[in-house]
Design a protein around this nucleic acid. Structure first.
Lengths: 233, 233
DNA sequence: CAATACAATAATGTCGACATTTTAAATTAA
DNA sequence: TTAATTTAAAATGTCGACATTATTGTATTG
């Protein structure tokens, strides 16, 4: 007899691993706000799960610095600050440049094909950015990931992903306040094309510089947004 | 009445945080071997602690990729492989070069002073490397950390520390088999001096190249060591 | 009235117990 | 003997209970 397994239930994982993704999502999207206390009672009923797996999940997010813990005072969402934002984005720009530099050296035909495919998928979504920013961001990230994959270093890519997640918390905070307007969106598109050109031409130095600017510009935009202060600490 | 608090007891931390350091140490030093199963009964009696805090500690090491988990089959020490070793060391070289490049741009007088101080402390230990390799490594690492600090980026330094820890597992495996001999040690000393010269001269590009070679040489040495295979997987 | 001290309420962190699953051993079959 | 099957033992993962600690609200005092 064949066991029927619900597709949404990751049977291979324990409860902690099942919930860690949801929990992370709730923090990154801002359902749980920066600095907010994460009460066990609330988490228990939200995720329908006991204390032990919850603490295990939170322990993982602790290392990823998405939550903070204080003895006998439980877990809190890691607070945000302009300083941290600057540092994360700056580091992210350097890491991404590093990935791309290596990718240009090491990337093969399959790598180039992957980039063009992802670019196409992203382009198709086009100006529908106002309809579903979340989906657009998904494709946008897939595009950049396709490029970075070329570095062929699991360790480096892991670092990259971790930084992306940390940064997305700030990006989402920003998205909540001012919706993406089409001019910065168009500028984005142009930058992407320039980047692709540099990559296919094998110009690593140019690509590195382009990606630095590309990643730093949202940071500059966020820099000006008010309303971060009251969320910090 | 004043409460007397034992210095060794980190009273501010819960049990998981108290034990995570020891656990990490035991994995990095090879007390628990790569791929070895981490039975709860054994861990319980070794650290004199219950299952819940243990699982929390292990969940943290899970993200740092020092342990692996499989549902209903518990935790294992993350296996080693030549492939992973190569990747970690290569990434580490690039990250360290990145830190140093930024440090040369941003570093101030205090930074330079810190480097010289650490270099002195390391040099004083000198040829006593045969007496306590562990202590020598501590000072060696302190020296490199002093340099990297100059980048002034907590996020980047965090990445750096994480990679150092992962790498030290391989380094310790190597130390167990062939004790440090004085010729590679002397070469090390020379490289350090060249590095300091480049740093104080403000030659970032030279410093970056020096550090790459410096970090990659142990990797090349480990590359040849036999006896990794039977520990892998 | 403000500030402190105290009580009660709530929340955390840890352990032991239990159901489920895996692993090892013993038994049987080919 | 070797392979497959059954049985026994051991280990994992989760929950509820409990002690300890923090927090909130109330009373007391100057």
């Amino acid at each position: 007899m064949i066991k029927t397994r619900p597709v949404n239930d990751a049977r291979g994982d324990n409860s902690a691993l099942k919930v860690v993704g949801d929990l992370k999502q709730d923090i990154l999207t801002g359902y749980f706000k920066p600095g907010e206390k994460l009460k066990m009672t609330r988490l228990k009923e939200r995720y329908q799960i006991g204390v032990s797996p919850l603490r295990e999940a939170l322990s993982q997010l602790l290392i990823e610095q998405l939550v903070v813990v204080e003895n006998q005072r439980g877990f809190k969402v890691h607070p945000v600050s302009r300083e941290e934002m600057r540092d994360i984005y700056a580091t992210r720009a350097e890491i991404e440049a590093l990935c791309i530099g290596l990718a240009v050296e090491r990337g093969d035909d399959e790598w180039e094909a992957g980039i063009l495919a992802a670019a196409h998928t992203m382009h198709k979504f086009g100006d529908m950015v106002d309809k579903d920013p979340q989906e657009w961001e998904r494709r946008h990230q897939a595009f950049h990931t396709a490029i970075a994959q070329g570095c062929n270093s699991p360790t480096l890519l892991q670092v990259r992903r971790s930084l992306y997640e940390k940064a997305s918390r700030y990006r989402n905070l920003w998205l909540k306040k001012n919706m993406a307007n089409s001019d910065v969106f168009d500028a984005n598109q142009k930058e992407h094309q320039l980047l692709i050109d540099a990559l296919l031409a094998g110009d690593g130095e140019q690509a590195r510089e382009l990606i630095r600017q590309h990643l730093l510009s949202p940071s500059r935009a966020l820099e000006k947004t008010p309303g971060l202060e009251e969320l910090a600490d």
